[in-house]
């Protein structure tokens, strides 16, 4: 091997080591179940639990469709209705997120700290993978869950073209682990009902569902 090739190999290995070293490890799981170690039947049971979480108002109120209007639903609200104040959150901003309209962004009220008073606007400090602050936004329209069946949500979650490019259950689990908006669902405060189970259990369920081959229900 020529000297220049050796140097190139060394550099590639070095940068891979650096990237791996800096990659933020998820503290909420240790081991990933081996592929095929969980039966399809068990996989369906794990998905049923995952759907319980994903269809909970703490998730679905912001996982809305192309009208860009978040919802107010769940025990705190009584009647299901669109978010008050006539808000709408089309795609705006440099990152192309659904973050509000014109001069009235979601973060006008949803700040980086959680409002602990009932019916106060909740908030959370969140960062993207580059450490940049992320304001309160709706998830991409592809992630529409509000009113969707278990089958529809399941097929979206495992489709890398519609789930933000996540190729497997580990990547989905890592996303669940690192996104502070998601973690907020289990610590919503102010008498808001939290999502069922725990974030740690939800991540474990996703990994187990992945090991079972990501089976989806018939409806």
């Amino acid at each position: 091997m020529k000297v220049i090739e050796k140097k190139l190999v060394f550099l590639v290995c070095f940068f891979m080591f650096v990237i791996e070293g800096f990659a933020e490890k998820c503290e909420l799981y240790d081991e990933i179940p081996a592929q095929g170690s969980i039966s399809e039947k068990q996989g369906h049971e794990y998905w049923a639990k995952i759907y319980e979480v994903f269809s909970h108002p703490r998730c679905t109120n912001c996982h809305v469709g192309a009208d860009n209007i978040p919802m107010w639903s769940g025990p705190s609200y009584g009647v299901t209705r669109p978010h008050g104040m006539n808000v709408s959150a089309p795609v705006i901003g440099a990152h192309g997120t659904r973050g509000g309209s014109d001069s009235f962004e979601c973060s006008s009220c949803h700040t980086t700290t959680n409002n602990t008073i009932a019916h106060g606007a909740p908030g959370v400090y969140n960062e993207d993978m580059d450490g940049e602050k992320v304001s309160w936004v709706l998830p991409p329209v592809d992630f529409e869950w509000f009113g969707k069946t278990s089958k529809e949500v399941c097929e979206q979650v495992k489709d890398s073209k519609r789930n933000g490019g996540k190729e497997n259950a580990k990547e989905i689990a890592d996303h669940l682990c690192h996104d502070k908006f998601i973690a907020w669902s289990w610590k919503p405060g102010a008498g808001r009902e939290s999502a069922p189970y725990s974030l740690k259990e939800n991540i474990a369920d996703v990994l187990a569902w992945g090991a079972a081959g990501m089976p989806c229900p018939e409806y």
């Binding site: 006008s108 700040t111 409002n115």
Partner: peptide, 14 residues
């Protein structure tokens, strides 16, 4: 920074 913000829920530390 030119955008509307509700000062009652914006903590100074933000």
């Amino acid at each position: 920074n030119g955008l509307s913000r509700r000062s009652c829920v914006t903590e100074v530390g933000e």
